[in-house]
Lab assay of single mutants.
Amino acid sequence: MIVFVRFNSSHGFPVEVDSDTSIFQLKEVVAKRQGVPADQLRVIFAGKELRNDWTVQNCDLDQQSIVHIVQRPWRKGQEMNATGGDDPRNAAGGCEREPQSLTRVDLSSSVLPGDSVGLAVILHTDSRKDSPPAGSPAGRSIYNSFYVYCKGPCQRVQPGKLRVQCSTCRQATLTLTQGPSCWDDVLIPNRMSGECQSPHCPGTSAEFFFKCGAHPTSDKETSVALHLIATNSRNITCITCTDVRSPVLVFQCNSRHVICLDCFHLYCVTRLNDRQFVHDPQLGYSLPCVAGCPNSLIKELHHFRILGEEQYNRYQQYGAEECVLQMGGVLCPRPGCGAGLLPEPDQRKVTCEGGNGLGCGFAFCRECKEAYHEGECSAVFEASGTTTQAYRVDERAAEQARWEAASKETIKKTTKPCPRCHVPVEKNGGCMHMKCPQPQCRLEWCWNCGCEWNRVCMGDHWFDV
């Protein structure tokens, strides 16, 4: 396979590697080409510095992935760790964990309700045991953590790749202090920090972006993250068709209702045909949960890209028209025109101005929308079919299609509260000796007794199943 190397943020060049090629071997190839010592090179990928003893497969490097290699003399205490030698983080029983690669970060837990604080980093599902597709590297999971809308060759929703760059020099040479644990960490600028490894760059702020994971991409090709779309790892039924499908869209209502993408497309087109989208002054033209839940309008309007190009163009047109109407304007009634106009409040005669090729020149009556006339309008008909009709959803289907309910059931079956801080902690095999993952707590306690870890627990039921 081919990976592209950008040395000291210059133009990239291809390097041929195998899945079992080590990072140090990659350094040696680059060092020979650039005429520099291999031990002064640092390989940066997806916000993480890659260790010498890791392989291309370990690092989730795919065909035509772009890695950054910078030349920086080692500072005291760094060289041993980078070589894969006596790194205290690798000691058996050590409590410190390697910062998780962005290629394996899962933010789907952050669609849980606000009262489930902490689960994004504490609760991990076991539903990723799908067998890898044919042709994928051994052991590589097909679980997708992110979804994007690819405006490039795909023109559809695709699995996405999370990447990070330095907000100062805009190069992907920043190593994160810690990985993101929720969508806010990724979507809110300057929320996460790190250290830029580019020479002479003092940058410390992280800037995240997404790429389409279905095809090789260049540095400049980015895609918009659709953070309401998630892999259906909890096997929730769709609120409309009641099938279990994946991926799904999880509405931001209190129940976190789930809808499959085909039904979401149908829901949007139906509402669009009836012009029953909601115009929100802050958000724009949007839709609420299909069950009509309060405070559930979709905030990231790129989710409506699921409509496809033709329907999305209609959505944008109707949204612009609705904006004009909300501002007190009118639409030209001549067939084939429909231009938005903003006449004076007491102006009865409205002319669709033909300047700049935008208007048709038609003069019409503001009251009856017919060709302009003197005197009273002959008839004014009330528009028919403008009443909002509820999208029919079966109550039982709505009850079963809740992301929140599956989460709470998982928590109930696989977790116990920490005796000190009461945060839910998952036990997935292993011994009875637990350690609270909350940095402010870190209590060592017994899963069996529910009390602080002691010699009695150690001698009596340390390794009970």
Rank of each mutant, 00 (worst) to 15 (best):
residue 4 F to C: 06
residue 4 F to H: 10
residue 5 V to F: 02
residue 6 R to K: 15
residue 9 S to Y: 04
residue 10 S to T: 08
residue 11 H to W: 05
residue 14 P to C: 03
residue 15 V to F: 02
residue 16 E to N: 07
residue 18 D to V: 05
residue 21 T to C: 08
residue 21 T to N: 05
residue 25 Q to M: 07
residue 30 V to D: 00
residue 31 A to F: 02
residue 42 R to G: 05
residue 44 I to P: 00
residue 47 G to E: 02
residue 47 G to V: 00
residue 51 R to N: 11
residue 52 N to Y: 01
residue 56 V to Q: 01
residue 56 V to T: 03
residue 57 Q to A: 13
residue 61 L to P: 01
residue 61 L to G: 02
residue 61 L to T: 02
residue 65 S to V: 03
residue 71 Q to S: 07
residue 71 Q to D: 07
residue 77 G to A: 11
residue 80 M to C: 10
residue 81 N to M: 14
residue 82 A to V: 14
residue 84 G to R: 10
residue 84 G to Q: 10
residue 85 G to I: 12
residue 86 D to P: 09
residue 86 D to H: 09
residue 97 R to K: 14
residue 97 R to G: 14
residue 98 E to T: 09
residue 98 E to F: 09
residue 105 V to Q: 14
residue 106 D to C: 06
residue 107 L to A: 14
residue 109 S to V: 03
residue 111 V to N: 14
residue 112 L to S: 14
residue 113 P to D: 14
residue 114 G to E: 14
residue 117 V to G: 15
residue 117 V to F: 12
residue 119 L to G: 15
residue 121 V to K: 15
residue 121 V to G: 15
residue 123 L to F: 09
residue 124 H to T: 11
residue 124 H to F: 04
residue 131 S to A: 12
residue 134 A to G: 11
residue 135 G to D: 13
residue 135 G to R: 12
residue 137 P to E: 13
residue 140 R to E: 12
residue 141 S to Q: 11
residue 141 S to L: 11
residue 143 Y to T: 08
residue 143 Y to K: 09
residue 143 Y to F: 15
residue 146 F to K: 00
residue 147 Y to C: 01
residue 148 V to L: 04
residue 151 K to P: 14
residue 154 C to K: 02
residue 155 Q to M: 12
residue 158 Q to F: 03
residue 160 G to M: 00
residue 163 R to T: 13
residue 167 S to A: 13
residue 169 C to P: 01
residue 171 Q to C: 11
residue 171 Q to M: 12
residue 173 T to E: 12
residue 174 L to F: 15
residue 174 L to M: 15
residue 174 L to W: 04
residue 175 T to L: 08
residue 176 L to Q: 03
residue 177 T to G: 12
residue 177 T to P: 12
residue 178 Q to W: 05
residue 182 C to D: 11
residue 182 C to Q: 08
residue 183 W to D: 00
residue 183 W to Q: 00
residue 184 D to V: 03
residue 185 D to K: 02
residue 191 R to L: 06
residue 192 M to W: 02
residue 197 Q to F: 08
residue 202 P to H: 11
residue 202 P to S: 13
residue 206 A to H: 01
residue 208 F to A: 05
residue 210 F to W: 07
residue 212 C to T: 02
residue 212 C to F: 01
residue 217 T to K: 08
residue 220 K to T: 14
residue 220 K to C: 10
residue 224 V to M: 12
residue 224 V to Y: 14
residue 224 V to C: 09
residue 224 V to W: 09
residue 225 A to N: 03
residue 225 A to P: 15
residue 229 I to Y: 02
residue 233 S to T: 15
residue 234 R to N: 10
residue 235 N to M: 09
residue 237 T to L: 06
residue 243 D to W: 08
residue 248 V to I: 09
residue 248 V to F: 01
residue 251 F to T: 02
residue 252 Q to R: 08
residue 253 C to G: 01
residue 254 N to E: 14
residue 255 S to D: 15
residue 257 H to N: 00
residue 257 H to C: 02
residue 258 V to Q: 01
residue 260 C to V: 01
residue 261 L to T: 06
residue 264 F to A: 02
residue 264 F to H: 01
residue 265 H to N: 07
residue 267 Y to K: 01
residue 272 L to P: 01
residue 273 N to Y: 05
residue 274 D to I: 04
residue 275 R to T: 01
residue 277 F to H: 00
residue 279 H to Q: 09
residue 279 H to Y: 14
residue 281 P to C: 06
residue 282 Q to W: 06
residue 283 L to G: 11
residue 283 L to P: 02
residue 283 L to Y: 13
residue 284 G to S: 04
residue 285 Y to A: 03
residue 289 C to H: 00
residue 292 G to P: 01
residue 294 P to F: 06
residue 295 N to L: 05
residue 300 E to D: 13
residue 300 E to Y: 06
residue 300 E to S: 11
residue 306 I to Y: 03
residue 308 G to R: 03
residue 308 G to S: 05
residue 309 E to R: 14
residue 310 E to S: 06
residue 314 R to V: 03
residue 316 Q to D: 11
residue 316 Q to N: 12
residue 317 Q to T: 14
residue 318 Y to D: 00
residue 321 E to G: 10
residue 323 C to A: 15
residue 324 V to F: 05
residue 326 Q to H: 09
residue 327 M to N: 14
residue 329 G to E: 03
residue 329 G to M: 04
residue 329 G to F: 03
residue 329 G to P: 03
residue 330 V to N: 04
residue 332 C to A: 03
residue 333 P to Q: 03
residue 333 P to G: 03
residue 335 P to T: 09
residue 338 G to D: 05
residue 339 A to W: 09
residue 340 G to K: 07
residue 346 D to H: 09
residue 346 D to G: 09
residue 350 V to W: 04
residue 351 T to F: 10
residue 352 C to M: 02
residue 352 C to D: 03
residue 354 G to F: 10
residue 355 G to A: 14
residue 358 L to V: 15
residue 361 G to C: 05
residue 366 R to T: 06
residue 369 K to A: 06
residue 370 E to D: 10
residue 372 Y to C: 08
residue 373 H to A: 02
residue 374 E to H: 05
residue 374 E to K: 07
residue 377 C to R: 02
residue 379 A to P: 08
residue 385 G to F: 08
residue 386 T to P: 10
residue 387 T to A: 11
residue 390 A to F: 06
residue 390 A to V: 11
residue 397 A to N: 13
residue 397 A to W: 09
residue 398 A to E: 14
residue 402 R to Y: 03
residue 402 R to V: 08
residue 404 E to S: 10
residue 405 A to T: 13
residue 406 A to P: 13
residue 407 S to A: 10
residue 408 K to F: 08
residue 410 T to R: 09
residue 410 T to N: 09
residue 412 K to Y: 11
residue 416 K to F: 05
residue 416 K to S: 07
residue 417 P to T: 09
residue 418 C to S: 02
residue 419 P to F: 04
residue 421 C to F: 01
residue 424 P to D: 12
residue 424 P to H: 12
residue 427 K to T: 06
residue 427 K to H: 10
residue 430 G to Y: 15
residue 430 G to R: 14
residue 435 K to P: 07
residue 439 P to T: 09
residue 447 W to I: 05
residue 447 W to P: 00
residue 448 N to W: 04
residue 453 W to G: 01
residue 455 R to Y: 15
residue 455 R to W: 04
residue 458 M to C: 15
residue 459 G to F: 15
residue 460 D to T: 15
residue 462 W to F: 15
residue 463 F to T: 00
